[in-house]
Nucleic acid binder design. Sequence first.
DNA 1: CTCAATTTGTTCGTATGTATG
DNA 2: ACATACATACGAACAAATTGA
Lengths: 256, 256
Amino acid sequence: MTKRTSSELIETYERSLSPLYAQVAAVLRQRITEGQWRPGERISTLEEVEKEFGVARVTVRQAMDLLEKDGLIRRYQGRGTFVTGTPPARHWLPLATDWDTLVGSIKDNVPKQLPVEGSPPALRLDLAEGAEAADYVFLNSLQTRGDKPYAYAQVHLAREVFDRSPRRFRTQTALFVLSTLDDIKIKHAHQTFVIGTADINIAKKLDIALNSPTAEAHCVVVDDSGVAIYVADIIYRGECVKFDINLLNTGHNLKP
Amino acid sequence: MTKRTSSELIETYERSLSPLYAQVAAVLRQRITEGQWRPGERISTLEEVEKEFGVARVTVRQAMDLLEKDGLIRRYQGRGTFVTGTPPARHWLPLATDWDTLVGSIKDNVPKQLPVEGSPPALRLDLAEGAEAADYVFLNSLQTRGDKPYAYAQVHLAREVFDRSPRRFRTQTALFVLSTLDDIKIKHAHQTFVIGTADINIAKKLDIALNSPTAEAHCVVVDDSGVAIYVADIIYRGECVKFDINLLNTGHNLKP
DNA sequence: CTCAATTTGTTCGTATGTATG
DNA sequence: ACATACATACGAACAAATTGA
């Protein structure tokens, strides 16, 4: 803040509590990622951007500093500012929407088990989904892909299920191990996703900025006796998840 | 920034480009909306928060100023700080994962058509999904629920489809109108979701803060001749969307 | 080659915001 | 509440490099 002329940005600025130059940078970055400004092209001059957003020259320069640090642009005195690269393509982690795909996708995951700090969080279970088991084991793990963490899982596993193969449950993804236990019949498996933001704990574990978007999954597996044997809360980095939903079954038609 | 001692927040702070007190405020707000601190309860003292985050007293006060302005807390000298407002319960907008549910849920929507400003954005269509139609009509609308906008839709509709009922396509949800046209056979309908953040344009349209989380849907409908007759990008407020996924079909068992 | 126009780089002064102790 | 220091933002002037007439 401080001296303000009228500007598109100013109104949103108040709410957003992030510095003007960061907001300008975000807009410019978007123009590059969307292909409005392509690699090799010259982008708007300082003066044009100043006028467009109604901000000072130095502010535009600060914004461009951010983009230059990310390797998106290169500036040449007297010539202009050019797009050098596009930001690395986001590469997605497709989230499964049915059991077989889900189990297939996590088959080879090697979660990194974390020590349980303090007392485990309370079981979050809607009784309409299933009955509570007598006792649960609490597991705590970090899912990674090539060193980079992408999800943090908190799992409550019915103790009698856990006891059938403690070692495997500690080294493999619990849901996958579950799917290999022959004598367990699954009646329901249900998952909900909501969008959230990273608190301090999650930000550190997933190595992302505080308050950056996350996908929060809540997954419940109920066996044939109606007991919830698996209740998990899994928090994904928002940037890397993608849902892929086929709205029609094959051959399905609008008119039934 | 500025003088820093070690702090849990400091590391994540650098990345986020927003002032410390705003970040602290966001964390405290989350604790209230999540129910960790309930209405009437006293929250942590200034000193506790200072220590927890490793920030100065004044910084914590600035954070609480924001919450107090939102009516979430009330401070009493000598007694402490109390949660006052029942945080407006997040109430969900269940996102459909099959055609019938989708059409049913939007049947009664009355989208607010917006004028097209400038030239419409380019069609974003993966050719593997369907062939491009000869010409498209571009529609632009805001979905609202009781005055509050919750989604912004950008729709490319094949002109020959649009021409069958221009008035209805301008007043009702395009996808619903589509489903009522008898002679249109749909071969594929496909939708993807990713998590994004609000740019300035979206923030203004959806009346949310810059950079707050969004759900970005990309929906493609292909007719029986393989032409993509409907291509939409819909951006939802992140706070109000929820996926509900049944992983098992009824009676389905782990062992096929 | 020179000159002018364009464009980025740099600096100064000032005011206010953010953060510490 | 105060003293201090750094960050953000403005406006303006000037310097340096590039380009094309």
